[in-house]
């Protein structure tokens, strides 16, 4: 289907049409596709969203939902842009992007993402400042374009740390390692349970490491690293752990966006997480999560 006049297409998009993966068919595809960009109210995310939207509209994305004041100016870039006011007005399939600077409180978005395969939650590392907004906006736009053109799968969660050149590494092809069929019967379980009790009401965190003899040992993160949200010291990852575990004191076993982002973006981490719902006296519940690179999201295995 020819969406736009070829003379308009070559004049406006000639530079882009030359690039492998776009070309004439890809450009026509972009004209027919849409994206929704949501962001939190931080200055970083607002400017990054604007930059991303301007790159997408410049590239010829046909439909956009961006409920921000700056969105009204986007038709000055491309008068043929269709600005949507609700998701129902967007074409299907459509890429959904959520930009957040702070991962806490993103559980609802992550749950929503689980049911929407063409959606992505982007989290900025805490070191990001407003000066990073344009670079991050470009990265967001590239994610959307690559997903729209079928060049790259859209990851469910991307955590971006511009201080780390290897970031974002949002998926891993390493096969998930199984922790065992009945975890409370494993020799290492009492150590983890005791650590959760002693740390309560703050989080306990650590890794499970398999030694040369095959035995699994527990490494505990220092308390200072787990008081608010678990961040493992880098030396914990010099040897790839069997799993990363942490507790949710008086909480559930849902993998939060922050949990997902940490383990996904760290290139040394193995894609297995054990989340423990702890009380003052015991582990009330637990769940193991495996990251599926093919599915592009975390999969959980019920205990």
């Amino acid at each position: 289907m020819l969406v736009r006049d070829p003379s308009h297409l070559y004049e406006r998009h000639g530079r882009q049409l030359l690039v492998t993966g776009v070309q004439f068919d890809g450009q026509q595809q972009l004209f027919a596709l849409g994206a929704a960009i949501a962001h939190d109210t931080s200055q970083l995310c607002t400017i990054a969203a604007e930059a991303a939207a301007r790159y997408l509209v410049g590239a010829g994305l046909g439909h956009l939902l961006a409920p921000s004041a700056w969105a009204r100016t986007l038709t000055d870039i491309d008068p043929e842009l269709q600005l949507a006011d609700t998701q129902a007005n967007l074409p299907v399939p459509c890429v959904h992007i959520h930009l957040r600077q702070r991962p806490h409180g993103a559980e609802a978005e992550l749950a929503w993402l689980g049911d929407h395969p063409r959606s992505c939650l982007l989290l900025w590392h805490s070191s990001s400042g407003v000066a990073d907004a344009v670079a991050l906006g470009g990265a967001v736009a590239q994610l959307v374009l690559d997903a729209s053109l079928g060049l790259q799968p859209l990851p469910a969660v991307v955590a971006i740390n511009l201080q780390d050149p290897l970031n974002p590494q949002h998926s891993s092809e390493a096969p998930a390692q199984r922790l065992g069929d009945n975890l409370p019967d494993q020799p290492w379980w009492p150590t983890v349970e005791q650590a959760c009790r002693e740390a309560w009401p703050t989080e306990a965190a650590g890794t499970l490491v398999r030694g040369a003899d095959g035995a699994v040992t527990v490494r505990l993160a220092p308390a200072s690293h787990s008081s608010q949200h678990f961040v493992l010291p880098s030396e914990f990852l010099t040897v790839p752990p069997l799993a990363v575990w942490h507790s949710h004191p008086s909480g559930g076993t849902t993998l939060s966006a922050a949990d997902a982002a940490w383990s996904v973006h760290d290139p040394k981490a193995r894609p297995v997480q054990l989340v423990l719902a702890s009380s003052a006296s015991a582990i009330a519940d637990f769940r193991v999560y495996y990251y599926s690179a093919l599915a592009g999201r975390w999969l959980s295995e019920a205990p």
Binding site: A59, D132, G137, G138, L162
Partner: peptide, 24 residues
Amino acid sequence: TCQVAGVIGPVVGQVGALAARSLW
């Protein structure tokens, strides 16, 4: 040149922004 080999907007945007960040 980009007239011959083409260029993708978000790519050139990231390079420009990141290079400016390096300068700063």
